[in-house]
Structure formats: C-alpha cells, structure tokens
C-alpha cells in the first residue's frame, strides 16, 4: 500500500469498518437524526439516549464507505458518556482536524483515537464521509434541545 493510502486506511479504520461498534437501533432513544450525503448516497441514522445532560447510550445504523462507517463507529465510542457540551466541543475539534490545511499539525491534540482520521484531509472528496455521522449527531442533539425547550 502506498504511504498516504496507508494514512487514509489505517488499521483502526479498517477494523471499525469491518466490525462497527454500537451498530443497530436504540429502542427508547430520547433523540435521533438521519444524515444523508446525496452526492454519494451514504446514509446514517444516529440514536441517542440522553439523561441529565449526558449521553448514556448511542447507536447508529446505515450504509456507507469504510471512512464513513468507521467514523460513525468511532464517533459513537467517543460521544458515549460525554456531556452535551463536551460532545459539541468534540465535534468542533474533529471537524477542524479533518478539514485543516495539511501544514497545521497540532490541531489533533486531545482527539485521541480519532486522530486516525488524520489522512482524510488529503482527500477533499472524502471529508464529507468522515464528518457525516458527526453532523448527524449534532442534528440529533439540537433537536433534543428544541424538544426540551418546548416541553
């Protein structure tokens, strides 16, 4: 495998693609949202259970490429147990990380395992694949806030 291909398809990504974590529906979800990338047909449905401002459980369903499947899988692992504020912050740093200009290198700090997506920024056509699940979880959490405020 050529080097930058290896950067993109790191072992961890291939592993999450093959055996996605937290896959499936969540009965009793308190909020959920669907994300769709019309350009490539990737589709993801994220379900969350939020209690006292904290994500206590999260799952996803959907079909997509290795990058989008692995990203959804790892997103669920990273978001589980986080407060809503922490989850939003994580989304912001992840987004900045995969859309960064190659020269900046220090942005990944604090992302931990998610740094395996560092190769994505070299593939502009694939950034959307990496961020789809994150945009979707954002949407789900924002809906929830709406629901809460109308209750």
């Amino acid at each position: 495998m050529s080097d930058d291909l290896q950067d993109l398809y790191q072992e961890v990504i291939l592993d999450h693609n093959k055996r996605p974590r937290n896959r499936g529906r969540l009965d009793h979800a308190t909020c959920d949202a669907e994300g769709y990338n019309p350009l490539c047909g990737d589709h993801v449905h994220v379900y969350l259970q939020v209690e006292d401002g904290r994500v206590t459980d999260i799952r996803f369903e959907g079909s997509g490429c290795a990058i989008s499947t692995a990203s959804a899988s790892m997103m669920t692992e990273s978001v589980k147990g986080k407060t809503l504020e922490e989850a939003k912050e994580l989304f912001r740093s992840f987004h900045a990380f995969v859309t960064r200009d190659k020269v900046e290198t220090d942005l990944g700090n604090g992302l931990g395992k998610l740094e395996v997506f560092s190769g994505v920024c070299q593939y502009p056509a694939r950034v959307k694949c990496a961020t789809l699940a994150w945009h979707t979880v954002q949407a789900a959490l924002e809906n929830r806030t709406d629901n809460v405020s109308t209750e």
């Binding site: 291909l5 490539c40 997509g64 490429c65 694939r126």
Partner: peptide
C-alpha cells in the same frame, strides 16, 4: 464500498466513477 474502490484507484492515477 465503491467510494473506497474509487479512492484507491485514484491513488493509482485511475479515474473511475463511484456512485
């Protein structure tokens, strides 16, 4: 997934459509 096929082919200089 075809997108991954497309990306790997692209690295080899091969342009195909995936979608």
């Amino acid at each position: 997934h075809p997108h991954d096929v497309g990306t790997i082919l692209d690295r080899e200089g091969i342009a195909v459509r995936a979608g």
